[in-house]
Design a protein around this nucleic acid. Structure first.
Length: 283
DNA sequence: ATGTGTTCCTGTCCGC
DNA sequence: TGCGGACAGGAACACA
């Protein structure tokens, strides 16, 4: 489900409720997510104070006063929701966990944070904070799209020898971290590049244009609170708004929104995943 | 090494 | 309504 803009939106939504607060209790109600949860995760989280909440690619990282870091990945259908009604004083009324509420974390004097994931492709892990960079899920990730290490020369180097379509190359988290199926299609349309062009055949101008366009696409989506298709919700339960601004994603048969283009959006399947593009203005 | 297809799991939607 | 099939925002893994 969530790509970088959705994960960043959720991180921002969690921050005011978790930062500097203490975890009163945590429970893994269903430990068989993508991988088994750490057996004693609830105990290791309980009593810890939240020091920082950050994001790397599509992962949320929560540093704790215990010297450990909680890693959260939402997979395709994962959600994180904040809930609980503050009643008289500082007492919080906790909701009854639902069918797919796999982990609940209660904040001292604060709300309940619930990890919900119907398909269970999501993951959580707990590790020493010093070991985060070497974690097997993080160590091979490419640069953050907003980081200084992501620039045209870098991208040219990573793409020039690749015999795979540019769509697939940009989905490869080792090339650049955080893009998913929506934002690759959207960024390629904004850049005027067909998704089935071979990555190694892009021109220097194509690659130079891709870097800022990827950033703009992601920033626009973050500004809209992410995209809501089915499962995604912001941490406060609000839906995102970027789905109303899709130019091509899930819009096959519609007119291309590029001014004066007149093309019609097509859907193709690449490596088993849908791509959307305008054959008239993407070359 | 790089590329592609399969797989994990549940829910929803669409056509018959 | 029910039923079967396609499809879904990810990415590890197996294999060519």
């Amino acid at each position: 489900m969530p790509e970088l803009p959705e994960v960043e939106t959720i991180r921002r939504g969690l921050e005011p409720h978790m930062l500097g607060r203490r975890i009163a209790g945590a429970e893994a109600r269903r430990p068989d997510l993508r991988w088994p949860l750490p057996a004693d995760m609830g105990r290791r989280l309980s009593g810890a104070r939240v020091e920082t909440l950050s994001r790397r690619s599509k992962y949320i990282l929560i540093d704790l006063s215990t010297g450990e870091t909680l890693l959260i990945h939402l997979g395709m259908s994962g959600r994180i929701l904040i809930s609980g009604e503050q009643t008289a004083g500082f007492h919080f009324e906790r909701p009854v966990p639902g069918k797919h509420d796999h982990v609940v974390i209660d904040i001292e004097g604060g709300p309940r944070i619930t990890f919900n994931d119907a398909r269970r492709f999501g993951a959580m892990d707990l590790m020493p904070t010093a070991a985060v960079a070497d974690h097997r899920l993080l160590r091979d990730l490419g640069p953050e799209p907003f980081g200084n290490a992501f620039h045209a020369d870098y991208l040219a180097t990573r793409l020039h020898a690749r015999r795979t379509p540019v769509k697939s190359a940009l989905l490869d988290q080792r090339v650049v971290a955080g893009l998913g199926n929506i934002y690759v299609s959207e960024a390629l349309h904004r850049t005027g590049i067909r998704p089935d062009r071979l990555a190694g055949h892009l021109s220097p101008d194509d690659i130079t244009a891709l870097v800022p366009t990827i950033r703009e696409t992601l920033l626009d989506a973050i500004g809209a609170g992410g995209s809501t298709l089915r499962d995604y919700r912001q941490a406060d339960g609000e839906i995102g708004g970027f789905q109303d601004r899709f130019r091509v994603y899930d819009r096959q048969g519609h007119a291309c929104p590029t001014p004066g283009c007149g093309g019609m959006i097509e859907r193709i399947v690449q490596s088993g995943r849908s791509s959307f593009f305008c054959p008239a203005c993407q070359r």
